[in-house]
Amino acid sequence: MKSLVIAVVFGMSSASPPFLPLRAGRVHEACGPAATGFAAIAAAMTGKPVLWVREAWQADNLHPVGFLSFMDPSDLLLTRTASQTDSLAVAEEALKDGALPFVVIEITRPLNLREGRRLQLAAQAGGTTGLCLIPEGMGSNAAETRWHAAPVFDPQDEDSTLMRWEIIKNKAGTFGAWHVRWNRETRRLHVVSPVGLRPGSANTPD
C-alpha cells in the first residue's frame, strides 16, 4: 500500500527541499533505477570529498564526466574492494574517521543486523552521512531512511533530470514522495509538481 503524499509544491523556487541534505550521523539507503542519481545529488548537497565504495568485480563503471553536472569529479574518491566484507570494513573506517563527510556504499548482498548497526554506530561516531545503494528488497533494518528513486519522463523539457523520489522507510518521520529536478547550471535541486501527469493523461507512468 503506497501512501502517495505530494508534498508542498515549490515550483521552480530556489528554496532547498526539506529532506536534503540527508540527516548526518546516520546511514541511509537508496534503491531503484535512479539510485545513482540520488546518491550523486545527495553527495553534492552534503559536502566534499565523497568516498564511493564498490567491489572490483562490478562491470559497470562510474563515469566522472557524468558527475560533472552534480559535483566536481576530483572530489570523488573510489575504492575497489575484493568483497562486500572489505567494502563494509572500508566504509566503517571512513564513516568513523569523519574526514569524508559522505560515503556511498554499493551493496550486493543483504546486510545482517550486526553489519547495519555497526555502520550506524560508525556514522554516529564520525558525524558523517552514509548512503547504501541497495538492490531492491535488500534493505537493512538499521537504516535511518530508505528511498526509492525512479527516473520520470519529462514531456516538457529536453535534457531533464526529472525523478520521483519516494521515502519508503523512515525512522524519524513520515513517508512522502516528491518529483524533483536537478538544475545543472546552478547545481540545485528543485521540487516540482508532477505537471502533465494527471490521471488519464497520455504520459502517465505506471
Partner: peptide, 17 residues
C-alpha cells in the same frame, strides 16, 4: 586532484560495456 574537467553535453552517470 586535477581540474580541467569539461563536458560540452550531458554524459551518463554510469557506463557499462
Amino acid at each position: 586532484p586535477e581540474g580541467g574537467w569539461c563536458s560540452p553535453r550531458p554524459r551518463p552517470l554510469r557506463l557499462f560495456p
